[in-house]
């Protein structure tokens, strides 16, 4: 396993896609800081660098999907996975080493984003407003959710055998997870009552707004269902952690790590039985 990790990290250091995605995260951090700085100067908006550090979380799924499908996919397209098996490595070790490298690459990319935001944002916007324990708790949950993404995309890539198929499947899966999470959030963010009209008093000229029950407001059981779907979906976890909803600091890491373990167990099982060409 150590040999595979050494080989894997060595290849990671030479991987164009890894450095491209890492550069992307740094560039995105600088861009976001620049946009916020412009708005702060134009409208006097207060900007919290701590909140900015959370924003990359929503993109982590797509970034991990691209990285995993290309980095691991090369082992299939170039046939080099055969060298690992033929030279006596256990398939479980090969799977775990790829998972470790993918997870490390995803987390490294996020850490680069955080460092860039800190380096650029704090001098521009001042010190972090958000309480540091909360920020660290949110980042810890984001890292757990990012690991869940790594588990899912390593599973897809190691099961698919073809780099093209795994890239397409991974990207579609990442986008589908985001769409599903946004749909759940959309339902959960529905107001209980909606404005249905207004009555104007002819004498005083006062306007009275009339509210009626929102037919799209979910029932209690529907709310529970959508909340559960949001919590188990890594994209939903990321949206909550980025500030779209108040996250459950116990449930989210629990769900994320359970998914990580479940997909790894399933992926390793499939890879172990898989006929390779």
């Amino acid at each position: 396993m150590n040999k595979l990790l050494r080989a894997g990290f060595s290849r990671l250091g030479r991987s164009c896609v890894f450095w491209l995605l890492t550069s992307f995260s740094a560039a995105l951090a600088i861009f976001m800081c620049a946009v916020c700085f412009k708005n702060m100067n134009a409208h006097g908006d207060a900007v919290d660098a701590g909140q900015l550090m959370l924003n990359y979380s929503t993109l982590t799924g797509v970034v991990t999907a691209i990285f995993a499908s290309i980095y691991i996919g090369v082992d299939y397209s170039d046939g080099t996975v055969r060298n690992k098996i033929a030279s006596g490595h256990r398939r479980f070790d090969i799977y775990l080493s790829n998972l470790t490298v993918t997870t490390a690459a995803g987390l490294f990319s996020y850490v680069v984003f955080i460092i860039t935001v800190a380096a650029v944002g704090i001098p521009l916007f001042g010190s972090i407003i958000m309480p540091l324990p909360r920020l660290f708790a949110l980042l810890g949950c984001i890292f757990a959710a990012a690991s869940a993404y790594s588990g899912i995309f390593t599973f897809i890539t190691m099961s698919a055998s073809s780099r093209t198929v795994s890239a397409a499947l991974s990207l579609l899966c990442a986008l589908a997870l985001i769409m599903a999470a946004l749909t759940c959030l959309g339902v959960l963010e529905q107001e209980k009552e909606i404005l249905s009209g207004s009555v104007t008093d002819g004498e005083s000229g006062e306007v009275e707004f009339v509210y009626s029950p929102n037919p799209r407001y979910p029932t209690e059981s529907e709310r529970k269902l959508y909340k559960t779907l949001l919590d188990i979906n890594p994209a939903g976890q990321m949206l909550q952690l980025a500030g779209r909803a108040e996250p459950d600091f116990k449930l989210i890491p629990l769900c994320a790590l359970s998914e990580f373990v479940a997909f790894t167990a399933l992926g390793a099982f499939i890879f172990r039985r898989k006929d390779l060409r």
């Binding site: 060298n83 030279s87 006596g88 060409r277």
Partner: peptide, 21 residues
């Protein structure tokens, strides 16, 4: 059997090499 495989070198169908190396 993995220990025996460590004594084996193989080229199966197409050469298994990293093309970007």
């Amino acid at each position: 059997i993995v220990r025996s495989r460590r004594r084996v070198g193989a080229v199966v169908e197409t050469p298994s090499v990293y093309r970007d190396m």
